[in-house]
Simulated scan of single mutants.
Amino acid sequence: MIRLHKKKSDITTETLVNTVWVSTFLALVLTIPALSVFLGIYFTTGNLLVGAVIGFGLHFVALAFSDRISKNLTRLLS
C-alpha cells in the first residue's frame, strides 16, 4: 500500500507573498529583454527571422542564469 505524506500546511503569508513577487519579477526579467530585442530588431530592420533568432537566443541565455537571478531576487526581496 502506498502512503502519501501530507503536504505542509504551515506556510506563512509572508513566505507566500515573497514567492509570488519573486516569481513575477523572474518572469519579467526573463521575457522583457528578449521581447524588446525581438521587437527592436523587427521594427528597425523589418527582418522577422533575425529578430526571432536573436530574441530566442537571448531568452535561453537568460534561462541559463535563471537560478542565479532567482536567488538574487529572493535575497533582494527578503
Score class of each variant (00 low, 15 high):
residue 14 E to H: 06
residue 14 E to A: 10
residue 14 E to D: 15
residue 16 L to Q: 12
residue 16 L to E: 09
residue 16 L to F: 10
residue 17 V to P: 01
residue 18 N to P: 01
residue 18 N to M: 08
residue 18 N to S: 11
residue 18 N to F: 01
residue 19 T to D: 13
residue 19 T to R: 07
residue 19 T to Y: 06
residue 20 V to I: 13
residue 20 V to F: 08
residue 20 V to L: 09
residue 22 V to A: 07
residue 22 V to C: 04
residue 23 S to Y: 13
residue 23 S to P: 02
residue 23 S to D: 11
residue 24 T to G: 04
residue 24 T to H: 08
residue 25 F to E: 05
residue 26 L to C: 03
residue 26 L to K: 14
residue 27 A to S: 15
residue 27 A to N: 13
residue 29 V to R: 12
residue 29 V to Q: 07
residue 29 V to P: 05
residue 29 V to S: 12
residue 30 L to Q: 07
residue 31 T to L: 13
residue 32 I to Y: 09
residue 33 P to D: 06
residue 33 P to S: 09
residue 34 A to F: 07
residue 34 A to N: 07
residue 35 L to A: 12
residue 35 L to H: 05
residue 37 V to H: 01
residue 37 V to F: 04
residue 37 V to L: 15
residue 37 V to W: 03
residue 37 V to N: 02
residue 38 F to T: 06
residue 38 F to I: 01
residue 38 F to Q: 04
residue 39 L to Y: 14
residue 39 L to C: 08
residue 40 G to T: 11
residue 41 I to T: 10
residue 42 Y to I: 07
residue 42 Y to M: 12
residue 42 Y to K: 14
residue 43 F to K: 12
residue 43 F to S: 11
residue 43 F to G: 00
residue 45 T to Y: 09
residue 45 T to N: 10
residue 46 G to D: 05
residue 46 G to Q: 12
residue 47 N to K: 13
residue 47 N to L: 12
residue 47 N to A: 07
residue 48 L to D: 06
residue 48 L to M: 13
residue 49 L to T: 12
residue 49 L to P: 00
residue 50 V to C: 00
residue 50 V to G: 00
residue 50 V to W: 00
residue 51 G to L: 11
residue 52 A to P: 01
residue 53 V to T: 06
residue 54 I to A: 04
residue 54 I to Y: 01
residue 54 I to W: 00
residue 55 G to K: 07
residue 56 F to R: 05
residue 57 G to N: 08
residue 57 G to L: 15
residue 58 L to G: 07
residue 58 L to I: 15
residue 59 H to D: 11
residue 59 H to F: 13
residue 61 V to Q: 02
residue 61 V to L: 13
residue 62 A to G: 08
residue 62 A to E: 09
residue 63 L to Y: 07
residue 64 A to R: 12
residue 65 F to L: 11
residue 65 F to D: 03
residue 66 S to T: 09
residue 66 S to M: 13
residue 67 D to V: 09
residue 68 R to K: 14
residue 69 I to Y: 00
residue 69 I to K: 06
residue 69 I to P: 00
residue 69 I to E: 04
residue 70 S to R: 15
residue 71 K to E: 12
residue 72 N to T: 07
residue 72 N to E: 11
